[in-house]
Simulated assay, not measured.
Amino acid sequence: MLSARTTVAFPRIAAFLPAILEALAAHDMPVTPQDGTFVAASPFGEALLTPGREHLGIHIRAATGPELNRVRHAVTGLIGFVAKSEALRIVWEGDEVGPTFPPDLRILTVRNIQAITPRMRRIVFEGEDLARFETSDQIHTRLLFQPEDVTIPEWPMLDDAGLIVWPGGAQRLGSRVYTIRRVDAPKGLLWIDFFDHGGSGPGARWLRRAVPGDVVGALGPAAHGPKPARRILLVGDETGLPGIARILEDAPDDMEGLALVIVADESERQLLRMPKGVEIRWLLRASPTLASEQKPLSAAVRALDWSVDQRDLFVWVGCEFHDFRAIRHFLRDEAKLPASQIVAFSHWRRGMSEEDIIAIGGDAVAA
């Protein structure tokens, strides 16, 4: 068993600890409290976080070098992102293994591409050893896109500082997070629905030129799957639609509930498979009734009947940041739904790229 430790000077640890633990759990590292220490377990190893008055002690353990660096990277990256404003200095001591390939990196090859709607493309990928992606509670993956001029793909590595070592010493690989629409591990197939929002980010550029035989890297899975419940409320825009579709397809036959989905117009509606007890309502931005609404998705959530007992309800929300923030505020502060019954997150933020969000850190998603 390999291990490494660090003690991080962290004057405001009490303010940031809940968000750090939540981020770890969302990225396939569920946390268990143990006598003043929080144990975050992952498929690669574990991290023990012991908060002090103005510091945070971290001890990580794993069976192999690649797994140790994977845990080290996850802890370093998530804490650094959540507490970006604190400019923390995280220096590890203990076992050093040198740069290693991420043990959860899978290479996927485009098998075919299908147009689902005018702006939604479904890509079926082929790959090996995809069983780790076949999970219902971790439904996202980070894809790595090779530059257009690369003929021999190169992939990042993880070092003993918990940082990514990019090919050529620079981040030439673009990356974005997507919902895994479906997985068939025995057949080595993985489906992802891409929404072409018209932007110029690495995912959008890759999507427009993608052809069968192209390769991408996939890391994960992570984050934001559904929780068991008798009733569901699913809320999202085009970026949340793949997750909503997957949750509905995987739901038990006796599930009851409602899905609220906002899309541009009639052409972006999809025929979804779902239990008979679940209704889907399509909100169309092009319709005159929504044209004057500043936050039509949030308004649709507010308009529901929240006077009935909600103890058997689970709510899943995936959409643009400002809509997400308004909906989460309503659910927690006005509808009084406990956090254990909510999974809510923003897929994107209007006017900001992922690089902008990373530069700001946790404030960009928690403001």
Score class of each variant (00 low, 15 high):
Gly203Asn: 05
Leu283His: 05
His55Phe: 12
Ala4Gly: 00
Ala326Phe: 04
Leu304Gly: 08
Ser346Ile: 06
Trp92Tyr: 12
Gly257Asp: 08
Asp160Cys: 06
Glu249Ala: 15
Pro153Gly: 12
Pro51Asn: 04
Ile116Asn: 08
Asp265Lys: 00
Glu266Phe: 10
Leu241Pro: 06
Asp356His: 13
Ala245Gly: 10
Ala40Arg: 07
Arg111Leu: 13
Asp333Leu: 01
Leu144Ile: 13
Leu173Gln: 10
Arg332Cys: 08
Leu248Asp: 13
Leu313Thr: 06
Met274His: 15
Ile139Tyr: 09
Ala366Val: 02
Val211Glu: 14
Gly199Leu: 07
Pro147Arg: 06
Ala251Leu: 12
Met352Lys: 13
Arg209Cys: 02
Phe125Met: 08
Asp35Asn: 14
Val124Arg: 14
Ala170Tyr: 09
Ala185Met: 07
Ile58Phe: 03
Pro212Phe: 12
Arg176Trp: 10
Gly243Asp: 09
Phe133Ile: 06
Ile232Phe: 14
Arg61Gly: 01
Met157Gln: 15
Ile139Asp: 07
Gln114Met: 11
Pro221Arg: 02
Lys276Ser: 13
Leu290Ser: 00
Ile164Arg: 06
Ala339Gln: 14
Phe195Asn: 00
Gly203Val: 11
Pro30Tyr: 05
Arg53Tyr: 05
Val75Glu: 10
Gln114Arg: 15
Leu233Ser: 01
Val39Gln: 08
Gly174Gln: 12
Leu2Pro: 03
Ile152Ala: 15
Ile139Trp: 03
Arg350Pro: 00
Arg181Phe: 06
Ile139Gln: 10
Arg182Ile: 07
Ile357Ala: 14
Ile358Met: 15
Ala222Pro: 01
Ala4Ile: 08
His73Tyr: 14
Leu130Glu: 00
Leu130Ser: 01
Ser340Cys: 07
Leu248Lys: 09
Gln270Phe: 13
His347Glu: 11
Ala41Met: 04
Met120His: 12
Phe195Met: 11
Ser340Ile: 03
Val261Glu: 09
Glu268Ile: 11
Pro18Cys: 05
Ala26Ser: 14
Ile79Thr: 12
Ile280Cys: 11
Met29Ser: 13
Leu130Gln: 00
Gly225Thr: 04
Glu126Phe: 05
Ala359Lys: 15
Gly188Ala: 03
Gly57Asp: 15
Trp191Ala: 06
Gly362Met: 01
Phe38Glu: 09
Val75Gly: 07
Pro33Thr: 07
Ser267Gly: 01
Glu128Pro: 08
His27Leu: 04
Arg230Gly: 11
Gln270Met: 14
Leu143Tyr: 13
Gly188Trp: 11
Glu279Pro: 06
Pro11His: 02
Val150Arg: 15
Glu355Leu: 13
Val301Lys: 02
Leu272Arg: 04
Glu128Thr: 12
Asp265Leu: 02
Asp250Tyr: 02
Val39Ala: 00
Lys276Pro: 00
Leu21Phe: 09
Leu283Trp: 03
Asp363Phe: 02
Pro33Arg: 11
Gly169Ile: 12
Leu233Ile: 07
Gly257Leu: 07
Lys84Gly: 02
Ala222Val: 07
Asp184Trp: 08
Ile90Ser: 04
Glu293Phe: 00
Gly168His: 12
Leu144Arg: 03
Phe38Thr: 05
Gly198Gln: 10
Ser346Glu: 05
Asp356Asn: 15
Ala251Gly: 11
Thr109Gln: 13
Val82Gly: 01
Asp184Gln: 04
Arg209Phe: 02
Arg72Val: 07
Pro51Val: 09
Leu271Val: 15
Arg119Cys: 11
Ala344Leu: 02
Leu219Pro: 12
Glu126Val: 09
Val110Gln: 11
Arg269Ile: 03
Pro167Tyr: 13
